Computed example of a mutant assay.
Amino acid sequence: MKAIVCKAWGLPDTLTLEELPELQPGPGQVVLDVQAAGVNFPDVLIIQGKYQVKPALPFTPGSEVAGVVRAVAADVQGYKVGDRVIAFTGQGGFAQQLAVPVQALMPMPPGMDFDTAAAITLTYGTSHHAVVDRAGLKAGETMLVLGAAGGVGLAAIEIGKALGARVIAAASTDAKLEVCKAHGADVLINYSNDDWRDAVKAATDGKGPDVIYDPVGGVYAEPAFRSIAWRGRYLVVGFANGEIPRLPLNLALLKGASLVGVFWGEFVKREPKANLAAMAQLLGWLKEGKIQPHISARYPLADTASALNDMAARLVTGKVVILPQA
């Protein structure tokens, strides 16, 4: 089987496409034929050794997949060859086959396509944990989403609307904002403009947003935090800008505001039942049409480096997926 291999820390073009032995399930494992694998910004960081988790070299990146069960260990119950499943695993997704522990599997709902199934776990899981669990966003509140056209940003918009909130989308181009509008954003703000804080103030009648969802970091963090409402919740989701901001903590004091960390991967490990409940709610919303992953591009396995380069250059809207069998 073919797989993308990271042999040394570096940029996407250092990855190699290799022929590896077919996989066999170990105890408690299921082997999948991977039909689609979601690409996420952490993948760009992991291959450079810049993420919170640092796998041992060599390894195959890719953490969320959808596929078909091809082999099942003798001690595994509940799954059989031919089942269509979703899996979230720390690595190994950018390959034609993947061995995963059975507890990392979830059946694909009837009628769901593989692309959508591979695009829902990390981005929507992260945003659900952030918006619902950590921020406790309520109907009638206002949420500002930075980097709103990215995978987690669009997910946050849709989840906010599903909860009955008002959502302000902030992104770097008007074209990206049009994508945000199509996914339910109520107000659009281009933060490439110098007066974007004034636009946030005007959109909230001077009150400021109750929740700020920030997967970007960098230069946008402090001005956004200065705009937050009294008792607001600022969600620290990631640093796609590449710079970890240093916020003056007196801002939290003056606004009675909370700075809230969001680490979905650790949440999944520590609170698996809560994560399964969140995924069940997300799949329910998907069935009701309240959320719908936006897949802007699909790449064959051989073009994985191109997908990651586009992600690093912030050229991606929503999600992109790798199709290992194509």
Rank of each mutant, 00 (worst) to 15 (best):
T142G: 03
D133V: 03
G217A: 09
A99S: 13
P109Q: 10
R197F: 06
H128E: 10
L247D: 01
T173N: 05
A118H: 06
P61T: 11
G261Q: 14
K138R: 05
V237Y: 00
K290P: 11
A104Q: 15
L323A: 01
K181A: 14
W196Y: 15
V260D: 04
E288Y: 07
D194G: 12
V316K: 09
L20H: 09
T304F: 02
D205G: 00
Q35E: 15
Q281L: 08
G28Y: 08
A169M: 01
N275G: 08
I168G: 00
V69D: 12
A169C: 06
A155P: 04
A87Q: 05
T121Q: 13
A73N: 07
T126Q: 00
L251R: 02
G318R: 02
D43P: 02
A135E: 10
L253T: 10
A74Q: 15
A257Y: 02
T121W: 11
W285F: 09
V30W: 07
K138Y: 01
L122S: 01
G78F: 15
P25G: 07
D186F: 00
A118F: 07
P12V: 13
E178Y: 04
K80I: 05
V145Y: 00
D210T: 09
V316L: 08
V152P: 01
K161Y: 12
E141N: 03
K273H: 08
A118I: 12
L177Q: 11
I120R: 06
P61F: 13
M1Q: 11
G10L: 10
I46C: 04
V187R: 07
G78Y: 10
S127W: 01
V34M: 12
V260P: 08
R298M: 02
T126S: 00
K181Y: 02
Q96E: 14
S63A: 12
A8S: 15
R70C: 09
P27D: 14
S227F: 02
A307T: 05
D195I: 01
G164I: 07
N241E: 09
A278H: 09
K181V: 06
G164S: 14
P215W: 00
I322G: 03
I212C: 06
K201L: 09
R166M: 05
G28R: 14
P55D: 04
V200Q: 04
Q35L: 13
L308Y: 07
W230Q: 05
A119H: 13
A66G: 12
L315K: 14
I46Q: 03
V237A: 03
Q91T: 11
A56D: 14
N190C: 13
Y124C: 11
I322P: 12
R166Y: 03
P25F: 05
D194L: 09
E18M: 09
G218T: 02
G38K: 13
E64W: 08
W196K: 07
S296E: 15
K287A: 15
P215R: 03
T173G: 03
F114D: 15
L154R: 14
R233E: 03
R84P: 04
